[in-house]
Structure formats: structure tokens, C-alpha cells
């Protein structure tokens, strides 16, 4: 497969799997005994949670490689992983709120996992904001990598501090902890979300790398006279 077709293939595969898994989860899988149809949100909520954490972990890896290798490729991947990770985390909070209202009776509760996800959204969202306000691409790469490393290192401390403070969320759902009837839609959607995330990160990283090249080329009005004088010299 050609490298430039890889993200589109991942996106297509991801969307197809998500459609299949969601159809299975919504129409074929049995309803849960106590929660009924509300439980069906688990088929997107749990895969979103896994992949949001995976994207932010990948961002942490990219940040370390960007810091130590100083290669702009890793900065482009960091930007892509941050954006996709933050988007998935926001979706995760929204899905959680939709599930929490009929189940717990409130849109939001200060439970460790909810609070940690909200803190993650703001911590990593802040790094995306930082990137918008730094013009020098080298400083932008270093600073956002440093901020990503610190934010990721902070996640376990935030989780345990909030856990001591309050806890309500049920134990984590995985194919091993749910009934066999729920396994397949959960697994299919988890892989669908993984492929979708991989495609989005690949596409966004490519865009970030092109923007970086554009920045390195310098502003257009300055480049044009140089090109014109070079052309005159050649004649």
C-alpha cells in the first residue's frame, strides 16, 4: 500500500468497523438487565476511553522523541496526537454525561475517572493553545513537548488525589468483565475506533508537517523578490 493512501484506508476500515459494531450493539445485542437500553452507550464510550488514553500516551511518546531527537516529524505527530486525544477525551466526557443522567441522576459527578478526564482535557488543551501563541517553530516544538511530558506525568497523581477525595464510578468495563453477549460489538468498535484514530493522526501529522515546511520557507512577500532576482540572475 502506498504511504499516502494509508490514512484513508485506516479511516475507511475504522468507519466500516464502527458502523458494524454499532449496528450489532444497538440492534442485535441483548439489553442489560438493570440499565436497559442506556447501557448500549458502552459500545462507543469504552472504545472512546481506551483510544483517548492511547492517543495521549502516543503524544507522550512523541513528546519524548521530539525532545531528544529534535526531529520535526515527531513534533508534527505530537500535534496530531494531542488534537485527536483531546477531541476523543471531550467526546468521552460528553458520552459519560449522557450515560450519567439516566443512571446516576446527574450530568456530572466528581468521580476520579470523570474528574481526571476533565483535567486531561484542560491540561492537553492548554498545550494546543500554547502552540497557537508561539511563532518560532523550534521553541514551539520544545515547549509543547516539555508541557506534554509534565502533563502526562501528572495524570496518575491527579487520578489518585481525586480517588482519595471521592469515588462513585463503576469498575472499568472490558471484554473480560462484561457478559459474553456484549463482547463482540465492544471488540469490533474498539478496533474501529483504533483504526479511525490511526487514520486521523496520520492525516493530521501530514498536515502539520506541510505547515512546518511552509513556515520554514519564510513569508511570501520576502520570498518573492528573492525568487525574482534569482530568475533575473539566471537570465
Amino acid at each position: 500500500m502506498k504511504a499516502d493512501r494509508f490514512p484513508y484506508a485506516m479511516l475507511a476500515l475504522g468507519l466500516a468497523l464502527l458502523l458494524w459494531g454499532s449496528y450489532w450493539g444497538l440492534f442485535l445485542a441483548p439489553g442489560e438487565t438493570y440499565m436497559g437500553d442506556v447501557q448500549r452507550i458502552m459500545y462507543v464510550h469504552v472504545p472512546t476511553a481506551w483510544n483517548a488514553m492511547l492517543a495521549l500516551t502516543f503524544a507522550f511518546g512523541c513528546a519524548l522523541l521530539s525532545l531528544f531527537r529534535k526531529d520535526p516529524v515527531w513534533d508534527a505527530r505530537l500535534e496530531a496526537a494531542l488534537e485527536v486525544g483531546v477531541t476523543l477525551s471531550v467526546l468521552l466526557c460528553m458520552q459519560g454525561a449522557i450515560w450519567a443522567k439516566p443512571t446516576w441522576g446527574v450530568w456530572w459527578d466528581w468521580d476520579p475517572r470523570l474528574t481526571t478526564t476533565a483535567v486531561l482535557v484542560f491540561a492537553f488543551g492548554g498545550i494546543l493553545a500554547l502552540r497557537q501563541f508561539v511563532d518560532d517553530p523550534v521553541k514551539r516544538a520544545t515547549w509543547s513537548a516539555v508541557a506534554a511530558v509534565i502533563a502526562y506525568a501528572d495524570v496518575p497523581i491527579v487520578y489518585f488525589s481525586v480517588k482519595w477525595w471521592n469515588s462513585l464510578h463503576q469498575t472499568q468495563s472490558s471484554p473480560e468483565t462484561v457478559s459474553r453477549a456484549f463482547h463482540w460489538p465492544l471488540r469490533i468498535n474498539a478496533f474501529g475506533m483504533l483504526f479511525l484514530m490511526t487514520g486521523l493522526i496520520s492525516l493530521r501529522a501530514r498536515l502539520a508537517a506541510l505547515r512546518r515546511e511552509d513556515e520554514s520557507a519564510g513569508p511570501l512577500p520576502a520570498a518573492l523578490p528573492q525568487a525574482a532576482s534569482a530568475a533575473r540572475g539566471a537570465r
Binding site: V119, A123, F133, I157, V158
Partner: peptide, 22 residues
């Protein structure tokens, strides 16, 4: 970092507040 960036008064709390929740 933020002292060398634009909008430093906004950026510092934006980066710091989520981090210091513990």
C-alpha cells in the same frame, strides 16, 4: 515559557491550573 510567548497572562493559568489540581 509563557514570558516569551504572546498572551502570556492567559497562557500561564491555562497551563498551570489543571496541573496543580492535586
Amino acid at each position: 515559557m509563557t514570558s516569551q510567548a504572546r498572551a502570556r497572562q492567559t497562557l500561564l493559568p491555562l497551563l498551570l491550573f489543571p496541573l496543580v489540581v492535586p
